[in-house]
Amino acid sequence: MTHGTSADPCWTAQRDRLLLDATDALHDHHDIDTALWALLSAEFTPEQLLDLFMLCGWYHATSHTARATRLSPEPVAPRFHDVRPAASGRDPG
């Protein structure tokens, strides 16, 4: 399980927060709601949004393929469970 959101203080640029929100929405709901779409379309061009959606879809397809074929992770690649959140008193999930 990963932790954090676009509201975390490390994300200072609105564009970065919107990209995180969009990728989370696509991952969780396979869609962008009307409110998020309005924010995204005010910040990014249609071409940039298409690139974002296609990139998210490509990574999704790659993860399906890797998992279905039982592809082993690279031995030196970090794993999400190896990364621990900074001690903040919050439960990461």
Rank of each mutant, 00 (worst) to 15 (best):
A87R: 12
H64S: 11
H81C: 10
L36S: 08
D33T: 03
S6K: 01
A77M: 05
R17N: 03
A35D: 08
A35Y: 02
L20W: 06
V76C: 12
G89F: 01
D31K: 10
A61L: 09
P73G: 09
L36G: 08
A68S: 15
H29T: 10
S88V: 03
H27T: 15
A7W: 04
A22I: 00
F80L: 14
H27S: 15
L55V: 08
A13E: 10
V76L: 15
D51M: 06
H64D: 14
T69V: 08
P85F: 00
S72V: 04
I32N: 04
M1R: 11
T34I: 06
H3C: 07
P46W: 01
S88C: 11
L71R: 15
L39K: 15
R84M: 05
D21H: 04
L55H: 06
F44S: 03
L20I: 11
S41V: 02
A13V: 05
G4I: 02
G57I: 02
A86Q: 10
A42T: 04
D24V: 10
D91C: 06
L55R: 01
M54F: 13
D21G: 09
L36N: 02
T5W: 00
A13H: 07
C56H: 14
Y59M: 02
W37K: 15
E74K: 15
G57V: 01
L39T: 13
G93S: 06
W58I: 12
A25E: 00
L50N: 09
Q14N: 09
T65K: 13
I32A: 04
G93D: 04
W37Y: 13
I32C: 00
P75R: 01
H3T: 07
T65E: 08
L36C: 03
T5S: 06
P73V: 02
L55Q: 06
S88T: 15
S72H: 13
A86Y: 08
H81Y: 13
R15Q: 11
T69Q: 07
P75E: 00
R67C: 12
P9M: 01
T45R: 00
S72T: 15
L49D: 01
A77K: 09
T69F: 14
D91L: 05
W58F: 13
A86R: 12
L52V: 02
D33K: 03
R70D: 12
A87P: 13
W11M: 05
T69E: 06
C10Q: 13
C10K: 13
